[in-house]
Amino acid sequence: MSAETARHDAKTLRHQQPRFRGLEAGHRACQGCGEALAARLVTEAAGPDVMVANATGCLEVFTTPWPQSAWRLPWIHSVFGNAAAVAAGMEAALKQQGRRTRVLAFAGDGGTFDIGFQALSGMMERGHDVLFVCFDNEAYMNTGVQRSGSTPHAAMTNTSPPGTARMGKRHMKKDILAILAAHRIPYAATASVAYPSDLRKKVRRAMDTGGPVFLQVHSPCPLGWGHDSDLTVQVARLAVQTGLFPLVEMERGELIGTLPIREVRPVTDYLRLQQRFRHLFAGDFRAEKELEHLQAIADRNIERFELRGGGKERYDTEGADTVHRGGDRWA
């Protein structure tokens, strides 16, 4: 069978599907939604014996327009700020019942960095056996693109618009991973939809580690970031390759691993694809200054995490992004 035939053979394609999908097709996410892709990858890797507590946000809205639901998992949404606490309650119940079902908490960056932060910190401090996944699309997308604690410096949102007196968001993106790591939790990592195998590996590692664990998944939002919907993976990859979104793993607050960058790209390669950074390409003095700031942030990440690879790493960025489905490689 030629490669060409195989690509169009439904039976083979089905065989290549993972054994379990927690989030089915047919939901109502936008074209190219990074969060939908991330949620599918996370739930595939986590397997069927889990329960999910979901914060309010796009993921909740586009998956469960009643009476439909795209979830094949027991799933509960309560309010915006309490995904971690609801998950903690579920975990306490399962523990008391002696059941082995695992608990996941899903939230966007608003439900993680901002309104859900206190509940998240409390859940981590108390040591519940919960994997908290933050689908980080760097603004309040569900309400129509407003700035959050995760929005990068200088990005345009509808509450951080650029103008004659402003150049987008004035503040820095909150270093949520460092804050979570400071809880000395067993495992905390960043991942990206551009690196699915790396993402799945981290989900499995988190769940194997157990205890309160955290995963921050960089998930582009074509609508909010202003890029073409077929560029989601490319944009996400450039965030990693520029050093603006480093992929790192921490255990008990200590750095244990990074995904090195084979060829470091200038931040402008990443920024120019997105309308939210359009004002940084006006060519004037203010724009140049902001570009310098963003390049400095990326440079600092690369230095701090020693991300500059030599070009021959086993886990170089181009090689690690191949999609392999079925889970055999990570057994």
């Binding site: 329960m51 903690a88 309650g89 206190q118 509940a119 859940m123």
Partner: peptide, 23 residues
Amino acid sequence: EMVSVESEHSAASVALGAAAAGS
């Protein structure tokens, strides 16, 4: 399981999650 939480918002949320999970 006695869960001493960090706010009443979470106290109600933990009770909600526990009851939903069958306890």
